[in-house]
């Protein structure tokens, strides 16, 4: 196992990281959005489409973010305003997103990302940091999107744990009635953070279509949205653990290809199971320790009716 493997794990984990952060922020607001896969696909196709039309990487990212946000706002409307069942709404969003991306992408098949967008996402070596032996190659010789992921983790962690607004958000997810009593606008908080979560998911999808692949093929996400949902549990709703988990899951996704050469006879099927096994183990450990911060937000999945208090 050399540094190139770990560097590849970071790249493979980046789309997972964005989607996981998006889902964390959504679940912290008390809403379980299973539409991650759908929002990622919407972000992937719109990001690609805008990039192809405008030749601008920044606009492409904006397009992806808006597409993910739009998907999430459908979910928000259904679950916050109409108080529909969150699981069903999320699944519907996944199906919708898959259809939407196939429909939109129909004409994009075979297209390749324009050269100047490819150049924009070329690996950039961060001065000094990239010279650190081993770690430098793993973390600081990537494209800007990966660094943006690092920054997002820190920003989200700071927001959740060190700001008043973050505290309010956690209160909404833990006990909406109590938060409402203390004067927090529940609906607004839920809307904003669900949409924000969708934006991050859309960006995760765009990483796949614009940087990782970078060409249009149908269903580029291929189930990563579901891994992200598992990752949220694995990371126990903590963005700092999420970055560790995302790179770990990214590594598990690709480790099989590297082991096969080493003459260790492990079935690829077993390796494909690893992320899910890890999630189950994390769940068991989390419940065993019975520590508060390992628990899901208490009001997760429960629609909030003010009159029901």
């Amino acid at each position: 196992m050399d540094a190139s493997f770990f560097a590849a794990a970071v790249v493979a984990g980046t789309p997972l990281l964005f989607a996981t952060l998006g889902e964390i922020i959504t679940e912290k607001a008390g809403n379980l959005n299973l539409g991650v896969e759908g929002m990622m696909l919407m972000g992937a196709v719109i990001g690609f489409f805008v990039g192809l039309m405008t030749n601008s990487p920044i606009l492409a990212l904006f397009g992806a973010a808006i597409a993910g946000g739009m998907g999430a706002s459908i979910f928000a409307f259904l679950t916050v305003s109409l108080r529909a069942n969150q699981v069903v709404s999320g699944l519907a969003l996944t199906i919708f997103g898959a259809g939407f991306s196939s429909f939109m992408g129909n004409k994009l098949i075979g297209q390749v990302v324009p050269v100047n967008i490819k150049d924009f996402f070329k690996p950039v070596h961060i001065p000094l940091l990239s010279d650190i032996p081993f770690l430098g190659q793993i973390f600081f010789q990537h494209d800007v999107f990966v660094y943006f992921g690092f920054i997002s983790v820190i920003a989200l962690g700071f927001y959740l744990y060190s700001t008043r607004k973050g505290l309010n958000l956690r209160a909404v997810g833990e006990n909406a009635a109590a938060a409402d009593a203390s004067g927090i606008n529940i609906g607004l908080y839920k809307y904003i953070h669900i949409v924000l979560g969708g934006i991050l998911c859309g960006l995760g999808g765009a990483y796949l279509s614009l940087v990782y692949i970078p060409a249009w093929q149908d269903n580029v996400v291929a189930g990563r949205g579901w891994i992200a949902v598992a990752l949220v549990i694995f990371a126990s709703w903590n963005p700092y653990k999420a970055i560790f988990g995302a790179f770990l899951f990214g590594g598990m996704d690709i480790i099989g290809f590297r082991i096969q050469r080493l003459d260790i006879h492990i079935s690829q099927y077993l390796i494909d199971m690893l992320p899910y096994v890890a999630t189950i183990v994390a769940l068991i450990l989390g419940t065993n320790k019975n520590r508060k911060e390992n628990h899901p937000p208490k009001d997760l999945g429960v629609p909030y009716f003010r009159e029901e208090r």
Partner: peptide, 18 residues
């Protein structure tokens, strides 16, 4: 290298990189 999938652009790319 086996990927155990017919269709996953990112995974196939990763296998080729390995």
């Amino acid at each position: 290298t086996w990927t155990n999938t017919w269709y996953d652009p990112a995974k196939e790319k990763e296998a080729a990189k390995a």
